[in-house]
């Protein structure tokens, strides 16, 4: 397995270089370093001298990919792309264009995102699987049909509606929880109840339908018939056999998400005032802060690759036939 992981990590290097290259090309196609300087320096009293010094200070006076003024290898190495990319591979994200340490910012913002995303993910997983098993247990009944209709209805409504409706209902009308805010530790529990509840509810429709279809594929298999023939109760059949055999496709979709839970959710964090990573990239794009954009795209790619590797590893845990 170790050889497999090392191989996959080596494969990741050209992928990350490619992602980085595309990020550079796309960003600088839309924003010139002069525009970036203006966005950072403000609207008033921005002189050409000020812009020039800002660019020099941050290395944006260097050419992007080819330095025609340099000679030899320096034509490639003395460029913005190489200069900035090398630091990324050592996970040195440097400083944002507004002079904040990006690594320290990510570290600070990761936990608030995670404190919402993890409970949402766990509760949603348990709720969705339990409801799906319940529907499989009562498959073909009125309960099954009506729940499927409700699931489609839940899926059809925008997540933003649930957020606003949730805030109005639970905070404004019933006064149960704060409408938004964040605190770390136990004091913060009251702030995460509503976003977690809404996150779970908004995902129920698609989750339940997906898990139900996985379990229904299993329910008519021979091993299920054998289990029933042994006299096992329907609940034992579902939890002991159907769920276990349905785990493989579930893992494919679920484990890959786990590392990216740190990256947060833009809308959820924005509406609930969660100081997470959800809006970090979007804010950086809006303020043309390239240092943050490239760091976040790189981090997102790394986490996605880690998620894929974890998925492969998790297969071996649930299916002994799989060898890496």
């Amino acid at each position: 397995m170790l050889a497999y992981i090392i191989r996959r990590l080596l494969y990741a290097i050209p992928i990350l270089i490619g992602v980085n290259l595309i990020t550079f090309m796309l960003f600088f196609m839309v924003n010139s370093p002069d525009d970036m300087a203006r966005a950072q320096l403000g609207a008033k009293q921005v002189t050409p001298e000020l812009i020039a010094s800002w660019k020099e200070e941050r290395g944006y006076d260097k050419p992007l990919f080819i330095n025609t003024k340099a000679e030899g290898f320096a034509q490639v190495s003395d460029t913005l792309f190489v200069h900035e990319s090398l630091k990324l591979f050592s996970f040195d994200f440097g400083f944002s264009d507004s002079n904040r340490n990006i690594g320290a910012d990510i570290k600070e913002r990761m936990m608030p995102s995670f404190s919402i995303a993890l409970p949402t993910f766990m509760i949603a997983l348990i709720t969705n699987i339990s409801l799906a098993l319940l529907l499989v247990l009562f498959r073909g009944s009125m309960l099954d049909t009506s729940m499927m209709i409700v699931a489609v209805m839940i899926m059809s409504v925008s997540g933003l509606f649930y957020i606003i409706a949730g805030q109005v209902l639970f905070s404004k009308i019933w006064h149960w929880v704060p409408i938004s805010g964040y605190e770390s530790g136990w004091d913060g529990v009251k702030f995460i109840i509503l976003p977690v509840m809404i996150g779970v509810f908004a995902g129920i429709g698609s989750g339940v339908r997906w898990y139900r279809s996985i379990f229904l594929e299993q329910i008519n298999q021979d091993y299920v018939r054998t289990a029933r023939a042994k006299g096992l109760s329907e609940i034992k059949v579902l939890f002991g056999h159907v769920l276990r055999n349905g785990m493989l496709p579930i893992l494919t979709g679920v484990v890959v998400i786990i590392p990216s839970l740190f990256m947060g959710s833009l809308i959820m964090e924005s509406f609930f005032g969660i100081p997470g990573l959800g809006s970090y990239t979007i804010d950086a794009i809006n303020s043309q802060d390239f240092a943050i954009v490239k760091a976040m795209v790189f981090l997102g790619s790394v986490l996605y690759i880690i998620g894929l590797i974890l998925t492969d590893i998790s297969y071996t845990l649930f299916d002994p036939r799989v060898k890496l």
């Binding site: 805030q167 109005v168 905070s171 404004k172 409408i179 805010g181 509406f271 100081p275």
Partner: peptide
């Protein structure tokens, strides 16, 4: 406190917070 959205900000004001 950072309030990016106007709806929570407005409701918190009405609630006296």
């Amino acid at each position: 406190s950072l309030e990016k959205e106007s709806i929570p900000l407005w409701n918190k004001f009405l609630q006296g917070y």
